[in-house]
Computed example of a mutant assay.
Amino acid sequence: MKPQRLTFELDRGHVELNQLLKLAGLCGSGGAGKAVVASGAVTVDGQVELRKTCKIRAGQVVRVDGAEIRVVAAPAA
């Protein structure tokens, strides 16, 4: 099964990891996102990330449960 590839457009300087998982539709809530991060199932740029509110910025890649989220800067309005 191919991994699910998502692109998340970041419209500010950063997003907290648990909120990114919620906004990308991989978790139902920020609380669920915190639980997934705490379980050790999330990597950021290839490294396991256990900080639930780690700041994710454009250019980073987050992976969890076969899904890959590429974070990109939103185009200027």
Rank of each mutant, 00 (worst) to 15 (best):
M1F: 08
M1A: 13
M1D: 12
K2H: 10
K2F: 04
P3N: 11
P3W: 02
Q4A: 09
Q4F: 02
Q4L: 15
Q4V: 14
R5Q: 14
L6R: 07
L6A: 07
T7W: 04
F8P: 03
F8V: 04
L10H: 05
L10Y: 04
L10W: 07
R12Q: 13
G13R: 11
G13T: 08
H14M: 01
H14P: 00
H14K: 02
H14E: 13
E16R: 13
E16Q: 12
E16D: 05
L17G: 05
N18I: 00
N18F: 07
N18E: 13
Q19L: 14
L21C: 08
L23N: 01
L23S: 01
L23R: 05
A24D: 01
A24N: 02
G25P: 05
G25K: 08
G25M: 05
G25L: 10
L26M: 09
L26A: 10
C27I: 02
C27H: 02
G28N: 08
S29T: 14
G30R: 00
G30M: 02
G31Y: 12
G31N: 05
G31I: 07
G31L: 08
G31M: 11
A32I: 14
A32W: 07
A32R: 13
A32P: 01
A32E: 15
G33T: 01
K34Y: 01
K34D: 13
K34G: 09
V36L: 15
V37T: 03
V37N: 08
V37I: 15
S39H: 05
G40A: 06
G40K: 01
A41H: 02
V42T: 12
T43E: 15
T43D: 08
V44K: 08
V44I: 10
V44S: 02
V44Q: 06
G46Q: 07
G46R: 11
Q47E: 13
Q47K: 14
V48Q: 11
E49W: 01
L50P: 00
L50S: 06
L50V: 03
L50R: 10
R51Q: 14
R51Y: 04
R51K: 15
K52G: 01
K52A: 13
T53Q: 12
T53P: 00
T53F: 01
C54V: 01
K55A: 14
K55N: 07
I56T: 03
I56F: 05
R57A: 03
R57Q: 06
R57G: 00
A58G: 12
A58S: 14
G59Q: 04
G59S: 03
G59V: 02
G59T: 06
G59C: 03
Q60D: 09
V62F: 07
V62D: 11
R63A: 13
V64N: 03
V64I: 11
D65Q: 12
D65H: 14
G66N: 07
A67Y: 05
A67I: 04
A67P: 09
A67M: 05
A67K: 10
A67G: 05
A67T: 12
A67W: 07
A67C: 12
A67E: 09
E68C: 10
E68F: 01
I69G: 02
I69T: 08
I69Q: 05
R70P: 00
R70F: 03
V71G: 03
V71T: 07
A73H: 03
A73D: 02
A73R: 15
A74D: 06
P75S: 11
A76V: 08
A77T: 04
A77I: 00
A77Y: 08
